[in-house]
């Protein structure tokens, strides 16, 4: 399977990058580490005439502790760099736990945080070669007019399968987006669209430049539980992130987020309301687990059965809450 041919654009600055994006608009795909985009290009899921390589833009790299404001992570920072940054491990443990589970060490050396946040949604009927998709029949997400997973509808259920976004959602992260029209900043929770095709509120000419972890979330206890078959390499088949701000043994603030079971990562609504003020025990953890399971709508987009994956969201949430509380 060869990579389709394209012209590579290699800007050195953000300004150059956004100018190139504006120039080529819908004909260009951004590549950072390439660990998600390149396999998909080989499968001819994308055949862009231009590929814009961000790796020359050094201002996009690095983790900065900004006094009083929290931590900024450049979009091009590799997952390994985040994994090994002591500040992340100390202050944002849920992100530390999540980032360590992404793919494998080699892929984390290449993969970036921006790429992880902007990851394409995944589906067994979509992440396949051109030959496979031709044989099966194309689906809504690429070239087709129906969905194999839920054939009755006109909706794509491909699962968002990134590991760090649920952790970032728990931390109340925001992201900075730049285009030739300017800079905007948005909470990550408003970045995703629960639709396997639309996915992100990101225009083709925009770049995610930075991720902000607020100071207010520093020191929250965190736990990330990931369902996968192998101990490494695998994308999540379900993932649960829990972050609790503890005041003695009581919860002062809380967030619970799930991934890989919907077209977008989701914060579990009202989990905080249930937790705040209480000392979590098994029973409470169990209830939060059930709330999370109700938020999960897995379908046959991945390995293992949807019913099992949903059940694991329940179990993992319960465990993650208990792990944080103790």
């Amino acid at each position: 399977m060869s990579l389709p041919s394209f012209q590579l654009l290699r800007p050195k600055t953000i300004a150059e990058a956004v100018a190139l994006l504006a120039e080529h608009d819908r004909e260009v795909k951004i590549v950072a580490g390439g660990t998600d985009l390149l396999p998909s290009m080989k499968q001819k899921l994308f055949t862009p005439p231009y590929v814009l390589d961000l790796r020359g833009v050094s201002e996009l790299r690095g983790i900065r502790d900004v006094a009083g404001q929290g931590v900024e992570i450049g979009a091009l920072t590799t997952l390994s760099a985040i994994e090994h940054a002591s500040i992340i491990r100390k202050d944002y443990s849920v992100l530390y736990e999540a980032v360590r589970t992404v793919a494998s060490p080699v892929l984390r050396n290449m993969g970036t945080l921006g790429g992880n946040v902007c990851l394409d949604t995944r589906c067994l009927w979509y992440n396949q070669s051109l030959l496979w998709r031709k044989s099966c029949g194309f689906c809504l997400k690429k070239d087709g007019d129906l969905c194999h997973v839920a054939p009755g509808g006109k909706f794509c259920w491909a699962a968002f399968s990134g590991d760090t976004p649920p952790a970032l959602l728990c931390l109340g992260a925001e992201i900075e987006i730049v285009s030739s029209h300017g800079v905007r900043r948005t909470p990550l929770s408003e970045f995703y669209v629960n639709d396997g095709i639309v996915r992100l509120r990101l225009a083709p000419n925009e770049i995610v430049t930075r991720v902000f972890l607020p100071a207010s979330a520093a020191g929250w206890r965190g736990s990330y539980h990931k369902l996968r078959i192998r101990g490494s390499i695998d994308y999540p088949l379900a993932g649960v992130a829990v972050a609790l701000k503890m005041n003695q043994d009581r919860v002062a603030d809380a967030r619970v987020a799930i991934t890989a079971v919907n077209p977008a990562p989701h914060l579990v609504k009202d989990a905080d309301a249930q937790l705040i003020g209480l000392a979590p025990d098994e029973g409470l953890a169990e209830r939060i687990g059930e709330m999370a399971a109700r938020t999960a709508k897995p379908l046959t987009t991945s390995a293992l059965t949807p019913e099992y994956r949903r059940e694991m969201v329940r179990v993992f949430t319960k465990r993650a809450v208990v792990a944080c509380a103790n």
Binding site: K134, S135, C136, G137, F138, D145, H148
Partner: peptide
């Protein structure tokens, strides 16, 4: 067999 459905009504063989 894997779940889901191959309908072959849409754009496919």
């Amino acid at each position: 067999e894997h779940g889901g459905s191959l309908w072959f009504r849409g754009k496919g063989p």
